[in-house]
Amino acid sequence: MKLVECPRDAMQGLDHFVPTDLKIRYLNALLEVGFDTLDFGSFVSPKAVPQMQDTAQVLAGLNLSQTRTKLLAIVANRRGAEQAVSYPQIQYVGFPLSVSETFQQRNTNKSIAQAFDDVGEMQRLCAGAGKELVIYLSMGFGNPYGDPYSLALVVELTERLVQMGITIIAPSDTVGSSTADTIEELFQQLILAFPQVEFGAHLHTLPGEAPNKVRAAVRAGVQRMDGALRGFGGCPLATDTLTGNMPTEEILQTLAQEGIDLGINQAAFQKAMALSAGVF
């Protein structure tokens, strides 16, 4: 099981700007924990996401000499991808491709068709730079806009991505609409149909829902999971303000109950947990 810690997702919607030096301290604490990957920042318009305008400065302050954790940066277009692949420290470039046409327009100001064109360009950029492109299928469990949604549609979009050479795909529950049953059904079908793909679960939850969702993903065969300490963050467009990221501490506890040991440094984890209070 690969655990992806997502401080970028947790921070990006905050009303206050987290000072660059505090971001660096927090991320360096997370790098000591032993996560597989850290979703640490994004190369997007500072007008769209002011919180992430200092991603390059933050990256320069990270201590990567003693960590096994890999870095992932989110981008919204080709320009962002060009920036991300120029940094040797970054291994993964993430892009949100929506199952919902409305959300794709809101999130990246492009249609799904245009976004697919971007994905093709990003895949070429990543391949040329030795990076891996991670596609997040936003609104992967339904949407609040009345746009078409079905399991078959998710499979169809995944098929197109696979044909483009994408090997890491993370269906994302942007507004917290998934249930244990829909999580298990979706991932079982995808993993069976595309065994060559590494499927990740990027789920948003209401308080108390995380353990059942984690167990459902594990039952389906998911081997990559996203979380954020204390469940901070989530999508600003979610209708329920209580809907946030999967709390990493609940993911770890549930996985331990399922007999899955991620080899986390508990002392470093508690240090990061304490520091998170000052960040958020």
Rank of each mutant, 00 (worst) to 15 (best):
N143I: 07
L237T: 11
A81C: 11
E185D: 13
T69D: 00
Q114P: 01
L229E: 04
A277I: 05
S150M: 06
D117K: 10
S98Q: 05
I74W: 15
P211F: 05
D226A: 03
P7A: 02
C235D: 03
D118E: 01
T55M: 03
K110V: 07
K70V: 00
A60R: 13
M246A: 02
A152G: 12
Q83S: 10
A115M: 07
G130L: 06
L71V: 15
L262R: 07
V222C: 05
G221V: 09
G208E: 09
R215A: 14
D117V: 12
V214G: 03
T37V: 15
Q223V: 04
T108L: 02
N109E: 06
D147W: 08
S98Y: 03
S100D: 07
S98E: 03
Q83W: 14
F95D: 04
G80N: 11
T20D: 08
M273P: 00
E5A: 07
F194G: 07
Q189K: 13
A180I: 10
S150K: 04
N107Q: 04
R106A: 14
L30D: 00
G94P: 04
P236M: 02
S276D: 01
P247A: 01
G61L: 12
Q196I: 05
V75C: 03
T182A: 06
K47T: 15
E250Q: 15
H202W: 09
T167N: 10
V218W: 08
A10F: 05
A256K: 14
T67N: 01
L157F: 13
G165A: 13
A238W: 06
L14F: 14
V44L: 04
F43A: 12
F116S: 06
F194C: 11
L186C: 07
A48S: 13
E121I: 14
D9A: 08
K70A: 01
D181C: 02
A152F: 03
K213C: 11
I260L: 10
V18F: 05
V99T: 15
P96Y: 03
G244A: 12
V218E: 01
A81L: 04
I169P: 09
P46T: 13
S45K: 09
T254F: 05
Q91S: 06
E249A: 06
Y26K: 10
A210T: 15
G259R: 12
A217I: 09
P247M: 02
Q104A: 11
L229T: 06
F187R: 07
V18H: 06
F43E: 08
N77D: 15
F95W: 10
K110F: 00
P195Y: 11
D147L: 07
S111T: 15
R106P: 00
G61Y: 13
